[in-house]
């Protein structure tokens, strides 16, 4: 009896997924009967809320790409560097202090980071003489990168810690130095876990909403220029969903069409990352 209740609890998480899929698919199908997928995925103007309306999602995808790119420039190399430092170089006491401090960074609400991007980073860039727009992809992307740095560092470090210390000893015993042990033994042995952390970070960067909503703007355009204001898929969904769009209208349905595009992209990345994590566990456990 009790166990049945527990099993029912376990099913709720399945229901959440089913709910998401149902919520996304039905309005999206209606959307695609009105707007052809060909127009949606290949044309380059996105003005669903204006007349004349145009439904080319590419500007949103390019905007997402732009912020994600800058997020990756920060979080992948710096996250990996932090992970290698913590796992292979840092003394236990340093590690014990640095690791939880970085995790605080990952726990800062995104609205706070958005505020930081808009009121600190963008003015800083401008005072340095770079005439970025008030809302720009660069500031938002960099701050998303800062948000994700601890995620990459933590997951990559887990992967490196899972590399048996006998391999480190073996290579030190051959006369390798710390740099060689880290780069030639530990990182290659942990590569699938590191790659998984990268993919997961990319997926998170694509799905991040509040920071881009605050700091990257609401202007859909086909621009990868870092100083330009862009609109990401998430910013469109949140911006439009928060307004008063009449239910059943084509504008309302675009939320779901963009939503399902976002969902599929992140789903593919997540499944990929989950499988890679499994692989590195299988090797050593």
């Amino acid at each position: 009896m009790i166990i049945t209740c527990l099993a029912v609890a376990a099913l709720i998480s399945i229901l959440a997924t089913v709910g998401i899929v149902v919520a996304l698919v039905a309005p999206s199908l209606e959307f695609f009967t009105e707007i052809s997928p060909r127009e949606f995925f290949t044309t380059t103007t996105w003005t669903p809320l204006f007349t004349p309306s145009a439904f080319g999602v590419l500007p949103l995808i390019v905007g997402t790409l732009s912020t994600t790119l800058w997020a990756c420039v920060i979080c992948l190399p710096l996250g990996l560097g932090t992970a290698i430092y913590l796992s292979e170089y840092a003394r236990p006491r340093v590690r014990a202090a640095v690791k939880p401090t970085l995790e605080v960074l990952a726990g800062i609400p995104t609205v706070v980071l958005g505020y930081f991007a808009l009121t600190f980073l963008t003015p800083l860039l401008r005072s340095l003489g770079w005439q970025v727009e008030i809302f720009n992809a660069f500031s938002a992307g960099i701050i998303i990168g800062i948000l994700l740095l601890p995620t990459v560092a933590s997951l990559s470090e887990d992967a490196m810690k899972a590399v048996p210390s006998s391999l480190r000893e073996g290579s030190f015993g051959l006369g390798a130095n710390r740099f060689q042990v880290a780069t030639r033994v530990v990182v290659p042995a942990a590569v699938s876990g590191i790659a998984a952390s990268f993919v997961l970070a990319i997926s998170r960067a694509i799905g991040e909403t509040t920071i881009v909503l605050i700091a990257a703007g609401q202007l859909p355009r086909m621009s990868l220029h870092p100083g330009d204001s862009v609109q990401t898929m998430t910013a469109f969904i949140a911006g439009t969903g928060a307004g008063d769009v009449p239910v059943g209208s084509i504008e309302y349905k675009t939320i779901f069409a963009v939503g399902i595009t976002l969902f599929v992209i992140t789903l593919v990345l997540n499944v990929f990352a989950i499988r890679m994590v499994r692989r590195f566990r299988e090797v050593y456990e």
Binding site: T209, I237, F263
Partner: peptide
């Protein structure tokens, strides 16, 4: 765990 939060908003 990795689904973007905005998707829950759509739900």
């Amino acid at each position: 765990a990795a689904v973007p939060s905005i998707i829950f908003g759509i739900l």
